[in-house]
Write a protein that binds this DNA or RNA. Structure first.
Lengths: 205, 205
DNA sequence: CCTAACTGAAGCATCGGTGTCGCAGTTACG
DNA sequence: CGTAACTGCGACACCGATGCTTCAGTTAGG
């Protein structure tokens, strides 16, 4: 139960909701002002069905935010921010987040580093998780930057840039025979190297 | 002549255009979907006047882009990217850009680091100027990163973050008695330090 | 297999933004 | 100082998106 919104829906209704969420992520990632008709089309459903599942456009947006925020929260729990070695946390959290981003492009505009009036602010718990991570990295001597807030901001900015970097960028150092996993790994590596340098740690790993 | 769009306009008409551009920057920075009526209101003009000066919403947006792109182009010329010492160029260009951003908030969404479908792509000449700067920094031994494209991306991302950093952030290290110029200077310093570290140069200046 | 629930299709009212017009009043500039 | 240009105001048609509704057809699940 509670798979999407409530448990009191029939299986196909819940599937419709999921399809709509999925389609909305894809469509809205390309054009945040896209009409619900285009979302419905991408979902392979009638426009009326979208309205039936989500009372208003805003309700759909809210559901999207909730859905994606939950996934990020799950990452934070999964990587054990408070207990696992901080460098391991950094690597794992980055990799999972990156994969999440690629799977759900709209997530991009949902994790703003700077307070933009349009997009919803980053979830407090996510901020807190990152704060813990960077405090621990600092204590461990991996960085010299003592302000975790700045570290967080730089991290999220680099995450975004590493995310949208073209696959053939020289900085990734990928050969022609790299598969998708290699690519993600290369992006994580570039981020970690750049981040540690930026925060005053060892520029070379 | 050609102060705003063409020279064939009367003085007050040109002033109206300027007011509209100014107001559009302010209003659209807060809400990119704001109606032209709100822009007109912020400009202290009638909505019809906006339509008189700019045939369509798109035309207004285009004029905004042109206006701001021109300012950035002017910066590149002013700092002598090709001849002045690269570190001086970096400092000066950053400071001027920051001031420009604060004066024209909408500029934020007009200089995307990553290709976002909504915002217009960064002007080729701006990209080229940055490419030159980072190539020269690398040759001068200030960075170890050999890929100027990645350097550019990181720079623009950090510029944005440094721009939107709260004034009371510990990373800026400002006392209570800091004036506006101190603040900008602190932001420039933070960016340069962070950037050089990120690109494999000396983490400390 | 039967019923309740869900969907698709089509239509309709509404709303907000856009673009255009005319006219009266004001302002710039020769 | 006189005229041409510009502005404000109000009105209007238009358009696309939204949200709501109905009804026939399909599907899930007891």
């Amino acid at each position: 139960m509670a798979a999407t919104e409530r448990g009191g829906l029939r299986a196909d209704a819940r599937r419709s909701s999921a399809r709509i969420l999925e389609a909305a992520q894809q469509v809205l990632a390309e054009d945040p002002t896209a009409s619900l008709e285009r979302v419905a089309e991408a979902a392979g459903l009638a426009r009326a069905t979208v309205h039936r599942r989500f009372a208003s456009r805003q309700a759909l947006l809210d559901a999207l935010v909730r859905d994606l925020t939950d996934r990020y929260l799950a990452i934070i729990k999964e990587v054990r921010v408070k207990t696992a070695p901080p460098m391991v946390v950094l690597h794992r959290a980055t990799e999972i987040s990156l994969r999440l981003k690629y799977g759900h492009p709209f997530v991009t505009s949902l994790t703003p580093t700077h307070e933009s009036p349009g997009a919803p602010a980053a979830h407090p718990e996510i901020v807190e998780g990152l704060e813990i991570l960077f405090t621990r990295l600092h204590e461990g001597g991996y960085t010299t930057t003592s302000d975790p807030a700045w570290a967080r901001v730089v991290y999220l900015a680099l995450l975004q840039e590493v995310y949208s970097l073209p696959a053939d960028s020289p900085s990734l150092g990928l050969g022609d025979d790299a598969d998708a996993d290699d690519e993600v790994e290369a992006r994580v590596g570039l981020l970690v190297t750049t981040l540690l340098g930026a925060l005053g740690g060892s520029p070379r790993r």
